[in-house]
Structure formats: structure tokens, C-alpha cells
Nucleic acid binder design. Structure first.
Lengths: 344, 344
DNA sequence: CTGAAAGCGCTTACAG
DNA sequence: CTGAAAGCGCTTACAG
């Protein structure tokens, strides 16, 4: 129970009877480069193992300026969508020898700024960020400061900041086209209030597809507030269902879809008998629903893995000037919630 | 776009025209202690602000041996239960000036060992760990090595390792007593295969309460495997419902409860008409269920906050020898899934 | 092939 | 009140 002193490089060196330089070289696999004698290499490694030596990364990092730490800023780690991303980021980062530090911004600009400062002062080698509304200038300044940085899930078009996200336009284009093919015309969209590009792209995908199909007069986009979503969602759906008599509704995020499901249930509106329903991303909740739910599937594995790959490239090869854009393609999963209209 | 050099302590010192010592003292709030002149303090702080100086924590840590980093090892950050804990840990850690590094062990001993090594070599000041089955010796050795360590969610009784977890015995005692009061007798339990104490305690709470009520002959504990839970759950529920004719079933984790809900739905077994149902922890899925679900509520906020508090105490006051045991009390949330038996 | 020494950016006795 | 210097534990030119 005595405070065991940690084994230092010097301890190993003393034990073998050589300099710390030699031990450091051997343990960093540069023996050949320095043409160290084979027996020496063996002896050093053996001793280090026996003494259970592990380098103090802090010291190593102070020297080399690298921590092998990646900072991940999401809006809320307890949101299943982001914790799923976090897990994939973690796995890929581990494979590449990195460890992940995470933080939640709660979609707040000041928080984001503070978190980035904290993470940078902890010495993270780079950042993966889900940017919040209004953070474009902040992110740009970090990027211009030559900090390796990759956006995930959302991006800033027109900047040279790298990102990995869904092809959002395509997601709603696919969805809308599917609904039209199934015979629906009065199709509504439910998103949330934000200036962020991922949502705007999803809205455009819907609007332009409706327009191209000559259904402009049915275009209606409802935006709820992210805060008291439940109340607003009830109101929005009440209008859409009872006043506008929409035939199908598309939700732009997973949380919106789940909330929508609850509200429709409360309103005793049946899916798909009374209204066709399309969600965004899979959710466990869908399992319990009488009919399977049609939804957009994001290739999360790909999106998150790409983000790490791009970031580590930047860190290692100093490819800070190069902008990597990774748009992953969505998949539409057909369920019973969007049957051919005549089938109802 | 030029690589801006980071502002160093020395830069500030040069700018003011004093030594780094002085700047360091002022910026660390020790001006009074060293009786530094007020104008000097003001000038230093002003200059540091203007130059946008932020200390290199790596260097500071190398010197002081502290990183203000906490390592959190859960079984899977993408499991909503653990991501909820992670979020609370994050919040409390931030309040206390710490940042969280997280890792997922996948309930695997070797992973746990590797992750602990990595986190320690990153220089985390302490660890919060959800220990996996068979990790007792590993954890003990870390603890004996005087690394600040707190277990969360699960604990090792009979050791002097601090922990913050639910009063697990009480959870199933409450539940079982409630069911008995509602008039049920043939009550079954579904857990999973593990030697970990939290599940064993929950089983004991059930068994001893059944026994005390003279219902020993009805005691039946089913254990599914965590891997292909779905298939095993179907089989288990088939036996319980169709063969054993149980009147009520209690699930020992949230994932088990949700899976149970799906399986019962597939089997077209109605809740509560055909069987009474008790879940563990709230889940969004419950919202969609025709009747509200009776479930055990863990005070997650308290459990996670306590874990951080205990850990930071250990880190700051070196209270490594003191064992802190925090058992938080469960709450039974009554729902429509466990009505009085005669009401059915 | 191997070692003495400088240096990464801080903090903190120690000296004045 | 203030500064010169040592030291945290490494790595890496530099010298031999």
C-alpha cells in the first residue's frame, strides 16, 4: 500500500547501466537508425518490461508538442445520436493511437468557445466539432490558427473548413420523391429553427423536389423550437393534420420524429391510416410501433470514421491547408408507414 | 493564415518587463501571498489578457503532476444509460475544473486493463470506472497503487475501494413488495449472467422479499446472455408466460426491460391484462406504450455527481485511504403496468 | 554505437 | 516585493 514511485526512464537506464538517451532511442524503436547493438537492444527492452516501465506521456508531449489526444465537442453526449457518434469516434481514434476527450456544448456559442479553449489548453492535437448555430466565425478563427479541425454532422459551406457529414439535400430529395411515387401530394416537413446548413439543405431537398413535381402549392415547412419541442410539436401537428389535412409528414431529426410519434399517438392519429410518416435515423422506439417506420438512414459509421481519418491526416501530415469534404450518402429504409396511397 | 506562435509566459513577462516568476505568481492568484504591488498585478493581468495568454497546461502539469483530467471508463458510451451518466459526470467535473476523457470497455477485462493503462499514461488525475465482471483484482491493484479511483454503478463489496451506486437490494425489495401488495404471487425476475454485485444484490432483494412473504415456491430467476439477448429473451419469456404462467415479471436493467417489451409485443402478450411488468430506469420507449410502465428510478444525477465529488476529494486531499461508500436510494414509479390484481 | 547537455513551458523554493 | 535558477521526465541534435 506504500506509494510506489513510478518507474522513470532514468531508473531503467541506471538498472541497465547506460544513459537515458540510449534507453529512449531503443524504446522508441529507433535502434536500427542509430545502429545500436542487438544485445543492448534486447537487454534494454527486457529490463524495461521487467520494471514495468511506461513513459510519462506528459513529459514526452511537452517535448514533442503532441498528446495523442483528440477533442470531441458534440451538442450533448447524452443524446443517443451523438453518443453513437462518440462511440465510433472513440473506436477509430483508438485504432490510430488516440484517446478522446469529449464535451457537450448544449448548442451554445459561449459554451463552445469555452470548451475549445479548455481542450486546446489541455493540449489536444486536434478537434472534431459539431458546430452550433452562430459559431462560424469562432470555428474559422480556430481553423485559421492552424489548429487541426474537422466538423462533423454539420458544415459551413463557402469556407475552407474540412467536414464529414451526410448529403443532407439528397436525404430529403430521396424521401420526397418516394412519397410522391407512393401517391402523396400534400406532404409537409417538420424541422427546427436554426440557420445551420444541415437543416437548410434538408429543407431545400424537399422544396426543390416538390417544385419539380409541380407540387409547389403543397410546400409547407414547420419549424419548432428545440427547447419546448413537445408543446410546439403538438400545435404544429394539430395544424398540419386538422387544418391543412396533410397526407404525409417528414421529420428532419430523430428527436423530432420520436416526439412527433408521441404527439400523434396522443392525438389518436393513426399511422399510416390517417397520415404517412417518415423519420430521420433509426430509433429503438420504432420497434414498438404497430407498423414499421420508413426513415432516412445515416451511415454513421462512415461519417464518424471519416471525421477521425481526416483529422488524423491533418495532424500527421500537416495538411492544414487542404480542405477535405466528405459527404456520405443517405439510404431510405422503406417501412409500412408510407404505403401506396390507394392501399390505405 | 500564418502559423501564429502561441503566447508564452515569457512573452508576457518580456512585454511587461519583469521575470516569468512574477507573472506566474500573479496569474496563479498568489500576488497577495507574495505581497506584489497592486499596480504590478494590474499591469500583468492586463497585458496577459491583451496578449490573449493561456498557460500551456502540459508544462504546468509536468511540473505539478496534475492534469485536471478525469478518466471515465464505462462499458459502452453509446448505451443511453452510460451516456446519461457521462453527461452528468462531465457537468460536475467541469464545475470543479476538470475535463473528462472517456473510454468504452465493452464489458471486457483486457480492454479495461488497456484503457486504464492508456488513461494513466495520459496523466489523468483519477479514474471513474464501471468495472466489468472479473476485474476485481485489476481494480484493486490500481487502487493499491494509490491512483485515485471511484467505482460507479457497480461495486466490489469486501474491498476498500470507494464507489457510488444504487442501493440495489432496496430496488428489488421495493418492487417485489409492491407487486405482492398488488396481489401478485407468481412473480419472476429476468437478469443477465454475471458475477457482478449489482445484479446479485438485485436478485437477493427479490428472493429474500419473496421468502419473507412466504412465496418461496414462486421464486424464479432467469438469466439471459448479454450478447444475443433478443433470442434468449424470447425463449425465457415463452417459458415464463406459457409454461410457468407467471403473473408479473421484473427486469433488472433498462436494456432487458426494453427488449422484454419488444418480445412480449411480438408474442402478443398484453400488459397488464396478461402479465404485469416492471422495468428498470425510465426509457423513452415507455412513452409509446398503451399503459404507463411501472419502473425503478435510479437517481442518476446523484449517483454520478457523488462519484465525481468523491474522486475529486481523493485527488485534492489525498484521502486515498478513506473508503467512501455512496448508496443512493431507488424510487419506485407506479404505472399502469402493475394494477391491483383484482382490477384486471 | 553511445553519452552529456540542451530544451519543451511552466512553478516554486531560495536568495536578496 | 522581485528575479535567477532548478527541476518536472522526456527526446533529440550534437559530439565523439
Amino acid at each position: 500500500m506504500a506509494k510506489e514511485k513510478r518507474v522513470l526512464l532514468k531508473d531503467v537506464a541506471d538498472s541497465v547501466g547506460v544513459s537515458t538517451t540510449l534507453v529512449s532511442i531503443v524504446l522508441n524503436g529507433k535502434a536500427k537508425q542509430y545502429r545500436i547493438a542487438d544485445e543492448m537492444v534486447e537487454k534494454v527492452i527486457k529490463t524495461a518490461m521487467e520494471m514495468n516501465y511506461s513513459p510519462n506521456l506528459i513529459a514526452r508531449n511537452l517535448r514533442g508538442g503532441k498528446t495523442q489526444l483528440i477533442g470531441l465537442i458534440v451538442t450533448d453526449i447524452s443524446n443517443p445520436f451523438y453518443s453513437a457518434i462518440a462511440r465510433i469516434v472513440e473506436n477509430r481514434a483508438n485504432e490510430l493511437g488516440y484517446t478522446v476527450v469529449f464535451s457537450s456544448s448544449d448548442e451554445d456559442l459561449d459554451n463552445t468557445k469555452r470548451l475549445i479553449d479548455v481542450l486546446l489548453s489541455k493540449g489536444v492535437d486536434g478537434l472534431i466539432v459539431v458546430p452550433c448555430d452562430g459559431s462560424e466565425n469562432l470555428i474559422k478563427s480556430i481553423h485559421d490558427n492552424n489548429t487541426p479541425l474537422v466538423l462533423i454532422d454539420r458544415n459551413f459551406p463557402g469556407t475552407d473548413i474540412s467536414f464529414s457529414c451526410l448529403n443532407n439535400y439528397r436525404a430529403t430529395e430521396l424521401t420526397t420523391r418516394h412519397l410522391i411515387e407512393q401517391g402523396y401530394e400534400n406532404i409537409a416537413l417538420v424541422g427546427y429553427k436554426t440557420g445551420m446548413n444541415h437543416i437548410l439543405d434538408r429543407i431545400r431537398g424537399y422544396e426543390e423536389t416538390m417544385q419539380a413535381a409541380g407540387l409547389s402549392k403543397y410546400i409547407q415547412v414547420k419549424k419548432v423550437n428545440l427547447l419546448n419541442t413537445k408543446v410546439e410539436m403538438s400545435n404544429v401537428l394539430d395544424v398540419l393534420v386538422n387544418k391543412k389535412k396533410v397526407e404525409a409528414v417528414v421529420f428532419l431529426t430523430n428527436m423530432l420524429a420520436v416526439t412527433g410519434l408521441y404527439c400523434l399517438k396522443d392525438m389518436q392519429v393513426r399511422i399510416p391510416e390517417d397520415i404517412a410518416f417518415v423519420g430521420f435515423n433509426r430509433n429503438d422506439v420504432f420497434n414498438l410501433f404497430p407498423s414499421t417506420i420508413t426513415h432516412i438512414r445515416q451511415p454513421l459509421e462512415l461519417i464518424a470514421t471519416q471525421a477521425v481519418n481526416i483529422l488524423v491526416d491533418k495532424i500527421n501530415h500537416g495538411e492544414l491547408e487542404i480542405k477535405s469534404m466528405s459527404f456520405s450518402e443517405p439510404q431510405l429504409i422503406f417501412g409500412a408507414s408510407t404505403p401506396k396511397k390507394k392501399d390505405i
